[in-house]
């Protein structure tokens, strides 16, 4: 498995999730554990560029893939999140940013959404597409503003 560009040789039991492999075995703690059941999005990472919930992924299933966590991200979204105050406590932030990167790629590739379209990326589109990332501090406005700023 490649994690943030480095080859990580991991020998883990099949019941170890990708999230726990990253956090507890590799010390890559950027992806967060908020629910451990795919209900909050804090653990979002990119697997070969596709956003997934690493808590529901068994590490063995991602053998050979390229995993990108927030530590491996260098993206204008990061500064935009700060500028637009798209965060408060910071615990959901890694997942929000990784999810947003994956989401923008999906939109660029023509992925539709329940908000209705695959055309222009409106604020409503961003809200629907980002709904898998919960933020209890309620920084949603700032997150949407940051994404819109970068998408423009």
């Amino acid at each position: 498995m490649k994690v943030n560009g480095d080859v990580a040789a991991l020998d883990v039991e099949p019941w170890v999730s990708l999230l726990d492999a990253l956090r507890e075995r590799l010390g890559v703690t950027g992806p967060k554990k908020g629910c451990d059941q795919g209900a909050c999005g804090a653990c979002t990472v990119l697997a070969d560029g596709v956003r997934i919930n690493s808590c529901l992924a068994l590490a063995v299933q991602y053998d050979g893939q390229e995993i990108t966590t927030i530590e491996g991200v260098d993206h204008p979204l990061q500064e935009a999140f700060v500028r637009n105050d798209g965060l408060q406590c910071g615990y959901c932030t890694s997942g929000q940013i990784c999810s947003a990167i994956g989401m923008l790629a999906e939109h660029a590739a023509g992925m539709p959404s329940a908000a209705g379209g695959s055309g222009a990326l409106t604020e409503d589109e961003v809200r629907e597409r980002m709904s898998g990332n919960l933020c209890r501090c309620g920084a949603y406005n700032g997150i949407v503003d940051a994404i819109m700023e970068v998408a423009r």
Binding site: V50, I52, L56, R129
Partner: peptide
Amino acid sequence: LLSGASGQLRNM
């Protein structure tokens, strides 16, 4: 499909 789960889960 699009009304189910989240973007991340639908990718999986």
